[in-house]
């Protein structure tokens, strides 16, 4: 028989009870085992060298007492939006930072970005705050403020050297994400944007379970037009469905490129299967718009500048602003209140 992964129940189990599933041991429990469900599981002296160690370390330790703490901490935040994509390098972080900048143009709105990409954080660089560190006060960790009304939290601020690798397995990443929610002094905010790494694994499950109680407005799914990317994005939408996360819509990034020399538009990443628009239709979710590939967006990101401020008249800027308004509409807000027409 061909091996295959036909265990849909298992997925449901992971989703609904991500922090409570019983650990499946690969070997008998050793002598002096603290017990796979105990607080010390995977960390006690007798765990060293035990084949079960990794399993026990990530196993649940009873109902998570921190979730009410997180809910209280985030009670001042009006809207929480996740930025997701199954595929890497499609522009999740770029879109997150542009969305934040767009919201922040209104001085009365306060925006926060939480970067949950632990192994490859990009937000600090794109925001031009790569060298900052976190300040700790009695009230908790303070986010790094890019503008007066735009705060950021990322693992990058905690690294001794800029290029240090964060070589962490899942449980440790989950721990940090929890701290970002529990210990950071977010205060009163209108929007909290959660930038995520590619995939459907630990970070996504944690964000989902930690935020479930306090409520998430929904997720914006970013893709590029070619099928190789859509394939992974389809998986992410499947994940959202199973996890009960509302998908606000799909944004197609890097859609078409206008040659600066001859003004001919070419499809660098050809939408052989209809691109994001067809996927949105197939999955019955809103299509928020297509943003053309503009080398200046990448340039602005590299220098940590806001693309909206640097190139306000470019077609990509107009397309992005429309997408931002559509995101607002899908959240039930008035488009003008999110981003006024110029």
């Amino acid at each position: 028989m061909a091996p295959s992964l036909e265990m849909p129940d298992n997925v449901q189990d992971v989703l609904s009870n991500p922090l409570k599933a019983a650990p499946k041991l690969v070997a008998p429990e050793p002598e002096h085992c603290p017990g796979p469900e105990s607080e010390a599981a995977g960390q006690a002296d007798s765990c060293a060298g035990c084949p079960n160690q990794a399993i026990c370390a990530s196993a649940p330790k009873g109902p998570d007492p921190d979730i009410p703490v997180i809910t209280a901490r985030l009670s001042g935040i009006k809207h929480k939006v996740l930025i997701l994509s199954g595929k890497g390098g499609v522009g999740k972080s770029t879109f997150t930072s542009l969305l934040a900048h767009a919201f922040a143009t209104n001085q009365d709105i306060t925006v926060g970005i939480m970067d949950t990409d632990i192994c490859g954080p990009s937000i600090p660089k794109m925001m031009g705050v790569e060298a900052e560190t976190i300040h700790v006060s009695g009230a908790g960790w303070s986010p790094v403020w890019v503008l007066e009304n735009l705060g950021v939290m990322s693992v990058q601020f905690m690294l001794p050297n800029r290029d240090d690798a964060v070589i962490w397995r899942g449980p440790k990443k989950n721990g940090l994400i929890k701290q970002f929610l529990k210990d950071v002094e977010w205060g009163d905010m209108d929007f909290l944007l959660v930038d995520t790494p590619p995939g459907t694994s630990d970070e996504h499950l944690s964000v989902n379970s930690f935020l479930k109680e306090s409520g998430v407005d929904g997720a914006v799914v970013v893709t590029t037009p070619q099928e190789v990317a859509l394939l992974d994005v389809r998986k992410e939408i499947d994940f959202c469905r199973k996890a009960g996360i509302k998908v606000l819509g799909i944004v197609e990034n890097m859609s078409g490129f206008v040659c600066p020399n001859c003004k001919h538009e070419s499809q660098i990443f050809q939408a052989t299967t209809g691109g994001g628009r067809a996927l949105a239709k197939e999955m019955n979710i809103p299509f928020l718009g297509a943003v053309p590939l503009d080398p200046r967006i990448g340039m602005a990101s590299d220098y940590g500048e806001s693309f909206f401020d640097s190139w306000p008249d470019s077609p990509a800027c107009t397309a992005l602003k429309n997408v931002v308004r559509r995101v607002g509409e899908e959240m039930g807000l008035k488009a003008e209140s999110v981003l006024p027409e110029d």
């Binding site: 992971v14 899942g170 998986k235 199973k242």
Partner: peptide, 9 residues
């Protein structure tokens, strides 16, 4: 299109 929703272990 199935998502593989797995934690680290």
């Amino acid at each position: 299109g199935d998502a593989v929703v797995w934690r680290g272990p």
